[in-house]
Design a protein around this nucleic acid. Structure first.
Lengths: 340, 340
DNA sequence: AATTGGCACTCTGTCCGTGCGAGTGCCAGG
DNA sequence: CCTGGCACTCGCACGGACAGAGTGCCAATT
């Protein structure tokens, strides 16, 4: 039992040292830098066991040990104490996010802030449309047969969509349409919008029905379209710091980041309980993200999650600090969006 | 004279070979790959002169020659024939940009298209607000003392801005305000909006004046704010292909790309005549862009430029092809935006 | 005067062979 | 179960030799 305990201490020490130095760590260095109270030889025995169990590995015979994905996993789950943010960092967060003008601005600032705090690539998802509610719908005539539908959600997100209409439209119709759509959808969760369409069609004046149908369809389509869930990415320059494992891995990662779908799936799967989620290396189940870890969490007010945000960086990262940063930023963002 | 002519041929050949192979090019290889009709020795003499004139340089004694910034400049100005796009490329452009749903979508597709065509980082500027005209203004009440001002331009760009109001607002006011703002500003160039404010204030009912003032101020501020001219960036993965000259240069470039201001200044300065602009290496006058070239052009309909787009890549790039691609894409985008 | 072939020279990149240092695994003793 | 000692294994950095590429110059040719 006592051995198990110490072995975990050894693993923790290995992770910490490796993260800070980027050199495979040997038994001697470990004994010196950490007060484990045992000799290097003992540590060597522990390391042999840890290696056998798959928590660490050596890049080549006679180099130090390096944590495996499994090792990081254990570290994150059981060995890391959450590191509280420094006062300076808290202040930085406040200073950074205060004075944001609108949703766009909030998210842009957030992504920069996260990138700066963690020195990793930061990713923020726009508030998911289907979880938002309609605050207002606006209809603007663009040409004789085209309307622009503008959706404003209660999170401040503004979404626009061009709609081609089957027939010519006159100005009064537009006003009627606007009133109709707003009375039907205002305040409704977007996820429920689809269900209201038939009822709406019934109440509409016959002459308006084709228009209403077209607009409702556009609205529903806008939400369903998952590609519309946009992503803000920042701090990619931080990727260049490390060779990112294998050469070419950097390129793959940059591609994955532009191919927003992949990252969205990772960031979007937020834990219901609001816990910070960590996906390490192979756990990401995507080729480009082998060798990379994703730390993510949902943001939003207590009662509902609006979207996800997080960071992606090398598996060799400072998990406690980064997890704390991600969580803290998510709290602030949730707070700010709840206010506005 | 005949010598001068041939020397230029030699320079052209050097640029072409170096761009395609990335190896410093020597006299012997040149003589073999190009039908210059002279021996390597003669070429050596020409190269010596070219080097003295500053068009080429050798990385170290006894390596081949490499074009300097000045050499690329001469190549671009006088030696390169515009390479027409292939039919496949033209088709790709059409296929890519057709079916775009809104401005956002058009620009996102454009940036990807450009990145794919040129294998460089692509950059597209949102249509400049100050050069656009107001199509519609929308006012939505968000809370008792906050309004959301939404600006829709004739290019389809939608801009939003939260406005804190000095006093409580009731619903009728909002409707009046909307009508007032639209009648005052609709159709006006945004650049002229500032001038209309005083007149507007006079005509407004006294009770509305504070509101009108606040909204107008927000509107003007939105345009003036140069940071609001947004940028879409894509294809950063292409940067990883090359070490980008000096190590750390990649990092600097990625930082510059996120620091949109820098790139905006480059892309935004478009030539009035609609010509493609090329800035090579040091000409960019920004540290991070040493070693990088920017190829840019304005897009928009014939009578007015809406914004700029372009690519940034290593100085060692295929200028003729890339210039053709940038120009072709800009034409298409201008066309599409003119239609909508 | 321009071009050409020849030649000596100067580099760089690469390939080996060596030695060093770090780190391990194992074993015998406490 | 821990510890000190010891032999062993590698990777890596250093250094010399070598081949290859490319140049500059010069004398000969047209």
């Amino acid at each position: 039992m006592a051995h198990d305990e110490r072995r975990l201490q050894v693993l923790r020490a290995i992770v910490q040292d490796f993260v800070s130095t980027n050199d495979p760590v040997g038994s001697k260095a470990l004994a010196e830098r950490h007060d484990l109270g045992v000799s290097p030889a003992t540590i060597r025995n522990d390391m042999a066991v840890l290696e056998e169990q798959g928590y660490i590995t050596q890049p080549h015979t006679s180099a130090g040990r390096v944590p495996t994905d499994k090792g990081y996993r254990l570290f994150v789950d059981r060995l890391s104490a959450v590191k509280p943010l420094s006062a300076a960092e808290r202040r930085a967060i406040e200073r950074f996010l205060d004075g944001a003008l609108d949703l766009h601005d909030v998210l842009n600032r957030t992504v920069r802030l996260l990138a700066q705090l963690t020195h990793q690539v930061a990713v923020v998802q726009y508030p998911t449309l289907s979880r938002s509610a309609v605050r207002h719908l606006e209809v603007v005539q663009v040409s004789s047969s085209r309307l622009l539908l503008i959706l404003i959600t209660d999170t401040g997100r503004v979404e626009q969509r061009l709609v081609d209409c089957p027939l010519d439209i006159d100005l009064d119709d537009v006003a009627d349409l606007r009133a109709l759509l707003n009375s039907a959808f205002a305040g409704a969760k977007l996820a429920d919008a689809g269900g209201k369409v038939p009822e709406l069609l019934e109440t509409a004046a016959p002459s308006l029905r084709p228009l209403v149908a077209a607009m409702s369809a556009a609205l529903v389509e806008t939400l369903v379209e998952p590609g519309e869930d946009r992503l803000v990415v920042g701090g990619t320059a931080n990727l260049a710091r490390e060779a990112m494992g294998s050469p070419g891995g950097l390129r793959a990662l940059l591609e994955a980041l532009e191919e927003q779908v992949v990252v969205l799936r990772l960031i979007g799967e937020v834990d219901a309980g609001g816990a910070v989620l960590v996906r390490i290396g192979e756990e990401n189940a995507h080729e480009a993200l082998t060798g990379a870890s994703v730390v993510s969490v949902g943001y939003g007010s207590a009662d509902r999650a609006l979207g996800g945000l997080g960071i992606v960086g090398p598996t060799r990262m400072d998990y406690p600090t980064n997890m704390a940063a991600v969580r803290a930023v998510a709290r602030y963002v949730g707070q700010i969006l709840a206010e506005s």
